[in-house]
């Protein structure tokens, strides 16, 4: 019945991430929502390149058959590394914000001090 289940799951992951980023006030939970969006995009990219009955695009002792799309896998690799870098930088900022303000609530850290 659900022949395109990976696309539905990817869309649900992106939606859950956006809703998490919008309704949660804790900064770490907002970063978790961003990671959910990123995971959904990765799943969407990989399943866009799938060809029915395909094998991995590697010629070392490969069996006969069609190969799946390699470009989207390369772009997913790029996306994963950039996501790791972004998440690490955001978590570092949250650590400094918690140390300066004593809280990680987005409603309380937004007042200016100087």
């Amino acid at each position: 019945m659900f022949f395109n289940l990976p696309f539905i799951v990817a869309a649900l992951l992106v939606i859950l991430g956006i809703i998490t980023m919008l309704i949660k006030r804790n900064l770490i939970k907002m970063i978790m929502g961003l990671s959910l969006v990123e995971a959904g995009v990765n799943l969407l990219l990989v399943s866009l390149g799938y060809r029915a009955g395909g094998i991995a695009p590697i010629f070392t002792n490969a069996p006969a058959g069609v190969m799946v799309m390699p470009t989207v896998q390369a772009m997913t690799l790029t996306n994963i590394v950039i996501g790791i870098a972004t998440t690490a930088l955001l978590l570092s900022f949250v650590m400094v914000i918690y140390r300066m303000y004593g809280t990680a609530n987005a409603n309380k850290v937004r007042k200016l001090r100087g």
Binding site: V81, I84, A85, A88, L91, S92, M95, V96, R99
Partner: peptide, 18 residues
């Protein structure tokens, strides 16, 4: 490069805890 980068990020975060 990735070995150094990921290790040093975790090390920086460990140095930031009180």
């Amino acid at each position: 490069e990735v070995l150094g980068a990921l290790s040093v990020i975790v090390l920086y975060m460990m140095s930031g805890t009180k």
